[in-house]
Computed example of a mutant assay.
Amino acid sequence: MIADVIAVVLLLAIAAYSCAGGTDYGAGFWDLTAGGAKRGRRPRWLIDHAMAPVWEVNNVWLIFVLVIMWTGFPVMFQTVFAAMWLPLTLAAVGVLLRGAGFALRKPSRRLAGRRLYGAVFAVSSLLTPFFLGAAAGGVASGRIAPGTPAADDAWSNPTSLLFGLLAVAATAFLGGVFLAADARRFRADDLDGYFRRRALGALAAVAVLAVITLFVTHDDAPHVWHGLTHGVGLVFVVLAAVATLATAGLLLRTPGSWSRVTAVAVVASSVIAWGMAQRPYLIPTSLTVTEGAGASSTLHWLGIVTLVAVLLVFPAVALLYWLDTQGELEPLTDADLRRPGAGDQG
């Protein structure tokens, strides 16, 4: 029972990272496609201002996922990282390079340096979600099992490639929706329309890729296909479809903040549908939740740590997100620093 609870927590953490981290990756995608220095100046200005307050905290979810995997399900952790070390290593390198590129781009004084760091940030924002999605597709396809050696087929099969493309499209969609909302917050009406159109295009790509993936998994990942078309998995597929239609309608109509809620619902429902479709397996069809779970005492302590995180860490992260979306985390300007009393110590 406790193993099932921890497995659900792991799935929810993956969904949280897909939504929070995915939004940041999506911002990097639009940075990459913004065009040259002149044409892309304003979109990149918005991307820098929108990401600055929260881009580092989103990796909290990734750390939480890794901690749950290696402590709660060590056999799964060993199997996945041994069989697909290459895409996961590339994804980890992408996370590091992406953070370095974003952090160093703005303070760089030379144009060549800004371009270099900006390119590192943007390209890493494209490749990292692709490799993470490809690894998830390798798990879903059931091509790995305990003891499986590393092989290209584990992550370069049709299901993996489609999962990777879906991850890129989903992050671009989330990034477009949130950047459009940030454009309204900064009263940049031209960028609102700019990112809403791109969010709609990315949403269409997500819908098309999702349908193709469903057909491909019929033969390439039959267990997951059955789970997506029956039971709880189907319920979340339907929820994702409804949220997709709602988001499209909101993006086409009067601007509003609800599009962010429905966009998160699209991605979260899709991730949860995939997790529910794999039941009762961690890795179809070779490792069940019960077989892959760690010691009972470890799982109980992990449950306590998770409860502490729910009570202490998650509210703080939620507050940070709320403050950011309300525009309360704007950086100080020169005018702020010159106000009387700004330098007083008490």
Rank of each mutant, 00 (worst) to 15 (best):
F163A: 02
T89N: 07
V224A: 05
T71P: 06
E291P: 03
P331D: 03
G101I: 01
I2Q: 11
Y17C: 00
A83F: 11
V54G: 03
L332Q: 07
G22E: 09
R185P: 00
L250Y: 15
A335I: 04
D24S: 03
R339E: 00
T71C: 09
G193P: 02
R253E: 08
Y194E: 07
T288D: 01
D4N: 13
A34I: 04
S160M: 07
V5Y: 15
R197N: 09
S297N: 09
P331A: 05
R198Q: 01
V9E: 04
F314M: 13
R41V: 00
V75C: 04
A221M: 13
V5F: 11
T148D: 11
A210R: 09
L88I: 03
H49F: 04
A83N: 06
P107Q: 13
W258E: 10
A293S: 07
G256C: 09
Q345V: 03
G193N: 09
D152K: 05
Y281M: 05
L282G: 09
A248V: 03
A122R: 10
V95N: 08
V75T: 15
L200T: 14
V93G: 12
R110S: 02
V80I: 06
L323W: 10
L337F: 15
E330Y: 12
S286N: 14
V208N: 00
R41K: 14
R109Q: 10
A342F: 15
A207F: 03
I14E: 15
G36E: 03
H49M: 13
V289W: 09
G275C: 01
A91R: 05
F314C: 04
A140L: 14
P107S: 08
D189L: 06
A210F: 11
G227W: 13
A316K: 14
F64Q: 08
G292S: 04
T217V: 12
F77G: 01
A82D: 15
L282R: 11
G138N: 06
A83V: 04
A309G: 04
T171W: 10
V80L: 13
T148Y: 11
Q326C: 11
G28A: 10
L214A: 12
M276T: 06
I304A: 15
A295H: 10
F73H: 01
A27Q: 15
L126R: 11
A140D: 04
P53W: 10
L11K: 08
P53Q: 02
L251Q: 05
T171A: 06
A151L: 07
R279V: 04
G22V: 11
S141L: 04
R105M: 08
L96D: 05
L337P: 02
A183L: 02
L191E: 12
L319A: 11
T244A: 07
